[in-house]
Design a binder for these strands. Structure first.
Length: 193
DNA sequence: CACCCGATTATCT
DNA sequence: GATAATCGGGTGT
């Protein structure tokens, strides 16, 4: 098994968003291994993207989006949930991140069921706030290194052999709807909505 | 310091 | 399908 390295994330944000599909997100917590296959992502850029948290400037909330690629950006939203992003952008941009929107649960499913208080596998990780709760990811993980084994990392191996990618407008935003930066594995049952 | 609002979810009907 | 819950950050006074 190989952990994705920093060069993977120093490319165009929308390209990385597509390349993350089919990869495996892993979190080890108190000796329990939790993981899932990424089946849905969204790209958020910089000054060209009014939907992005990094649209205006660097603040105490969004600074991780301007930081090292291959690190995490975790934020709290709607008083309910955490959203997990991977910082990724190329040399033409000062910021960017990929929001992980849905997973297919792979390992540690019983732990996830208990954490989510839900039995159905489909209720565990089909949404950005659900999957952070299922994997035990909180704001403590903001800015954390993902390209080494720190307990939270991404595995290179494609867990799915081959698939088509669907591009669509992003969810839950008012501006930037012209960009087709929501990516998902075609016809995958664990895509949200 | 007050006001506003959001990259969502759960829980109804 | 509609709506309430809920809270931290950003903005301006």
């Amino acid at each position: 098994m190989t952990i994705l390295e920093t060069s993977f994330f120093s490319r165009d944000t929308a390209v990385v968003a597509q390349q993350l599909l089919g990869k495996q997100l892993v979190h080890q917590i108190n000796g329990t291994l939790l993981s899932g296959i990424i089946v849905e992502t969204e790209a958020y850029a910089h000054a060209n993207d009014p939907a992005s948290h990094a649209y205006r400037r660097k603040t105490t909330r969004n600074y991780a989006m301007f930081g090292d690629v291959g690190h995490s950006y975790v934020y709290f939203i709607y008083g309910n949930c955490y959203c997990f992003n991977v910082v990724a952008y190329d040399e033409t941009s000062p910021a960017g991140a990929v929001l992980i929107r849905a997973l297919q649960p792979l390992r540690g499913i019983e732990w996830m069921q208990s954490k989510r208080s839900k039995e159905k596998i489909r209720d565990l990780t089909t949404g950005p706030g659900k999957l952070t709760q299922a994997l035990g990811i909180t704001k403590e993980h903001n800015g954390q290194k993902l390209h080494e084994d720190t307990g939270l990392y991404l595995l290179e191996e494609q867990a799915i052999e081959s698939f088509d990618i669907v591009a669509a407008p992003r969810v839950g935003i008012r501006e930037g709807l012209d960009k087709l930066w929501r990516f998902s594995i075609k016809n995958h049952p664990f895509v949200s909505r």
